[in-house]
Design a protein around this nucleic acid. Structure first.
Lengths: 134, 134
DNA sequence: GTTGACCTGTGTGTAGCACACAGGGTTTAC
DNA sequence: GTAAACCCTGTGTGCTACACACAGGTCAAC
């Protein structure tokens, strides 16, 4: 049985993150009856590593909760996992497109501003650099 | 002088966003003495449009506050604007790389899982699909 | 007067933590 | 025994940019 710090090292996860997972119910450690410290089992090690792996594949903590619940019920989480990752893939694509578009706008602006001197604010303009962009 | 809704339409910004900007001090409308409604000036229209434009170039609301403060002080915000956008460009690049890497991992997993049947949870595995990924 | 649209101030939720704070526990060295 | 360093606990707040909720007031049209 391990303390927070010990699990942290083994599972390559910060103590704060582990405490957070306990708080939201993803991990349910037992207690040292002597000092009240949380004691994490081998199962908890497994789960913490799983959380890291799943997060690395784009699953949210809510998603992971769903997967754990399936597992506790003895049901296969696989269909849900397949659905969820398809959703997360679509969302990530949208987000990537947004960031790409933003990057374009920023690069174009920076390039354009290279040939523009610093301006002064006046009653009509706050920052003419930004205002020069449509 | 305009109400929240009127400004919302002209500046293509939700009423909630405008109220949020007032709350955080980006906009400082006057008041209708009769009913207490906020009254936004032409300057506020200008600022709201500016906020939209600057956000579209990756500036955060905090960044925009800094720009406004320079402007109120009669100082050129341009040097700050140049610095900030360079920061935001770098940050966006990092974020884009992260999302690209995530997309790769997700695509690879989805492809791999196509040839794997659904599995059942057991004492050692929570979800073998996810656990099959390094 | 009633209704629907608008306004206000105030508070909460969103995701996944990191950090803060107050206080208790453990180990080691002096 | 004391102190320091490290750890633990529970609880709360902050971060970003809003969207939404709630209770209550205002305005215009019917």
């Amino acid at each position: 049985m391990l303390t927070v710090s010990e699990l942290s090292k083994i599972a390559q996860t910060t103590r704060d993150a582990i405490r957070h997972y306990v708080r939201i119910g993803l991990l349910t450690p037992s207690r040292d009856p002597v000092n009240g410290y949380r004691l994490f089992s081998d199962g908890d090690i497994n789960k913490t590593k799983f959380i890291r792996r799943a997060k690395g594949l784009g699953f949210t903590l809510s998603d992971i909760k769903i997967i754990f619940d399936h597992s506790y019920d003895g049901q296969s989480p696989c269909p849900a996992v397949r659905d969820i990752i398809r959703q997360r893939i679509d969302e990530n694509r949208v987000r990537m497109a947004e960031l790409n578009a933003l990057q374009q706008r920023m690069d174009v602006a920076l390039e354009k501003w290279k040939s523009m001197p610093d301006g002064e604010p006046d009653s009509a303009a706050i920052c003419y650099l930004i205002e020069s962009i449509e």
